[in-house]
Design a protein around this nucleic acid. Sequence first.
DNA 1: GGTTACGGT
Length: 694
Amino acid sequence: MASQQEEGDLPQGFVRLRDVLDQKFVPGHIVNVIGSIIDTQALFKTSKDWKTTWSLMDWSVEDECYGVKLNIFRPRETDIPQIAYQDVVVVHRVKVQRYGGNMSFITNHQTTIRVYESSKIPRPPESASVALRPCTKKDERPELTEEIHHFVAAFYHKLDKTNAPSEEVFRQAARQSANVKDKFSLLQDVQAERFYDLIVRVVRAPHFDFDNKATLYVSDYTENPAFHDHIPENLDASQDGDVYGYTWEEPAPVAERWIAPEGKKSLQVTCWEPHSRALQEDVKLGSWIGLKNVQIRLGHDYKYLEGFVREDRTYPNRINVYPLNLDDRENMDDRLTAALRRQQAADKEKKKVIKDIKSAQVAGQKRKASQVQAIEDQPALKAKQRRAENRAKKKEEKARQNVVSAAPVAPSTKSDPPKQNPTQDVTLAGNRQIFCEKSNVGLTTIESMLEPSFMKIKIDADTVEVQVPFVNKKYLTFVRVVDFSPSCIEDFAVSRKITQYQDLSDSENSNGSSLDEDESSGGDNDPTVKRAWEWRFSLLLEDALPADGSSPARVWVTVNNGAGQCLTNLDADDLRKNRKCRYQLQDIMHILWGNLEEVKAANGEKQQASKQEVNSKPGSRGSNGNRTQMPDLDSDEEKEEASGRGKESSSRLNEIRLVSKPFTCPIKQYGVRTGKKDEWMRVFAMDGVRIKDV
DNA sequence: GGTTACGGT
């Protein structure tokens, strides 16, 4: 009951520190307090004010060694009183706050502070007024009554200071606090095995596990090469009003949603108690937060840096996660302002890319209309001649592909002049490890590419538009790979006996049927017969940017040996025998199609597709009715089937989400004979794409 | 604020 009596001893209107710690006053409450200073932090300049912190002790908290913190902010350095060890302060009208998980005081304009120099405080019943230090702040009116002077003398000499730090410790602590090591860092500068204070945005909401540990992703819109490369999914031009920018065909649940900027700009952070509690209360997707003393280390896989906010062993109550207020732009921390600017710039850039993609789509439509006229110059009946030219071109290309890598479309350095070509911006939005040949062809979509081919024919004075089986034409598309064939990667290369087919005849070369894919034809297991290996596979491509509301159009494109060499930078070989080549292929294709293999495996496509690949000769259809290589003559059917299959496929693929970066892809349309006299079908082939394994 | 960092995918 001693404390009751002590409470009674406090001058009128003053509160016990214990009651503040016990949260008897809500944050924001204004109180008067008296305490002895047991700890101090050196004065320093904030972005606006001078700041110091004192720790106060009174009878009610004398059995503890920490006291209650008083945070003093004042515009001038001289406004802050000088103090010495264990000086007694009388503080009027100070605000109670909760900061870093602890209760403390913060000054405001009304707050007055008076200090009694401890070494001069006389023993009671004398008045302590003789120990009063001069008023530092000019407008500070002394409000000290005789009652207070007498109380201070009694208070100081009665206070049990055995738990308070010694004068030596006090001095040491004060000195240490002077060498303020600013641990703030941008994410771009953090290194493993160090501790940092961060100002970041939550780009993936915290996920809490059973022991309340939280995992979240944060970004300050700076890039660190040691971070995981974030791939935004399905950048969608139809969603440019979306505040999150990157959206999904079907909105992901909030818990899984990312609003991370593209690239190596996001850090995974794990927070333990008590920090995780602060996340639970105040932090959502998109929040800006301060993180203090984040330990940076390599993650479990030793590949990427991660952050850890662990319990402070010396101060287990300390919380190093705090929400940042964006409303008061005037008094905002400069570092937060800068981070917000970076976010804004990133958002703007993203919008620009989306806009450019949209206008490229529109331009593609217009171009398509004008190209119909250009076809006039290609007489329809000179197909044979065109084929010959085509073959020559292909040979040329093959030769070139073997020597020269495809030129990147994306600007290689930041110092490049600003580019107007929309495809370049598109490339920025897509997979930066995939490059394609420079092209003077504008960007178009699979959707419009699949539209029937027409050409204009002059009959006397009239021009008639005639639908034709195919045109020779190049396209540039922005796509992702959603399926491949054959389903076994080992079958991406096929062989032929060298002796038998050394000189490929025109007809064999043009429709690709020269390749011996039949085991029973002999020679495959005959070691004396040399076999040449060639790439031959197909990829199902899907528009990465479907028009508003529509499901993306898809098309199977073939990849011939030259295109395969260019794409993978590998020479074809027997992938069942040459395991190294097989793994290299798998690694490189992973860059192109992301987790497509896993998606296919998980969705049981393997069994279905292994049958289909047996028949996968150009123009044939797999047993499941899918076109594995060549589209039909009837383009209406082709389009219908392509989109129909798309739906079916995407619902199957839903079990695991396909994660891959879209890329800019040149595609060629040309024609091949069906085998029937004068019958042609159109074929799409990927060409001039290079995956860079960096 | 100085130090210093486990604990779990």
